[in-house]
Design a protein around this nucleic acid. Sequence first.
DNA 1: ACCATTCTAAAACGTCTATTCTAATTGGCA
DNA 2: TGCCAATTAGAATAGACGTTTTAGAATGGT
Lengths: 206, 206
Amino acid sequence: MVRTARFSEEDFIEATMALVAEGGPAAATMQAIARRVGAPTGSIYHRFDSRSAVLGAAWNRAYASFIKALAPLLRKGRPREAALAILPWSRENERRARFLLLNEPVTLFEDTPPPAPLREELERLEEEFDGAFRACVSGCGDGVVRDEDLARAKFLIFDAPIAILRPHLMRGGALPPFAERMIAELHAGMPLAATRNRAARPAVVA
Amino acid sequence: MVRTARFSEEDFIEATMALVAEGGPAAATMQAIARRVGAPTGSIYHRFDSRSAVLGAAWNRAYASFIKALAPLLRKGRPREAALAILPWSRENERRARFLLLNEPVTLFEDTPPPAPLREELERLEEEFDGAFRACVSGCGDGVVRDEDLARAKFLIFDAPIAILRPHLMRGGALPPFAERMIAELHAGMPLAATRNRAARPAVVA
DNA sequence: ACCATTCTAAAACGTCTATTCTAATTGGCA
DNA sequence: TGCCAATTAGAATAGACGTTTTAGAATGGT
């Protein structure tokens, strides 16, 4: 190294997350990222090949942090704790939570996909997460993991809690206490494994 | 009228929905919309003021159709039926379902909001939907609708079913039968009104 | 003190997009 | 038939954005 860098990868990634969290993916233009860091746009290209490389790096970083918080609980066979762990993680990583949980990768990368190394890293992360789900599901039944059971687990532990949190993440500010209650009740009322060989208990109407 | 129009508002709206449903919001450029209809780009501007006017009109149309399918059931106090009604609606309106349920208005309109008349129409639609939810919730308890109860109803009837359907809507193709089972079980296991004056039933772990 | 290297800095380029403009065409109606 | 507003038609414009280029400044070993 011959010249000390004023701006780090970290700086650009953090700025990107903040911009997307605040104004959606379209707000994270290269010029906006640079402006936020206080750098000229060209400097970003000394660290990243392209805009999708910046976005991809930010996504992988946020996703890895999220998985780190949930996967151990899943592997220990604690789906309810895993679902509830999304709350403290979101509170401690507000920016990351808004960035990760309020955007779909498909909309974030729809124009140009990230470069190969980042795509591969993302695949690894997704496999790790998927594996944790499978471990959790297979721990609660026999060895075979049926599609329905996996879909059900992902819903109960991931998609449903996020759906509960979404309005409050969007609005900003604190997550209300009843969000936690809703997640807990959801897990109390709906079993992780699909009821086999009998129809769902019919709901009592009126 | 002095010259018969070859292209209708309808044509452009339908093309816009199809493009967004197939390739995300960014795929619906004015040129892509025009190409799909077989018209020159300029012709769109004889019917719509701007791109956001086209998107807004498409959104309002899809949303109105969706609300029309659900609101009556909500007002009749049938939350479970309302949630399940999303399935046939999505099957009968596959294009609209992908357009409406797979995109957030905030990302669709983040660059430039639709013109005032469309915004007002959207507000009316949202109020109608909100009113139906409130009617449904207040029907199941006393007159006062608490924030928590409203959030819970919107989750059970709207967000959770959509979260269940999302992977299958994205992938395309038929919605699996277990999606219906999951929604039914969700409503069987989790009551519409929050349990008052006592904590949520604790889940049995391990 | 020099020099290769790494970085900042800012302007410039090329592409893509929404939008506008100008001209040609249509078809009911006086 | 000949007018005329509505419409088609497609090129032209202007701006935004990602990316590249060029120039210069800083650094640490030799």
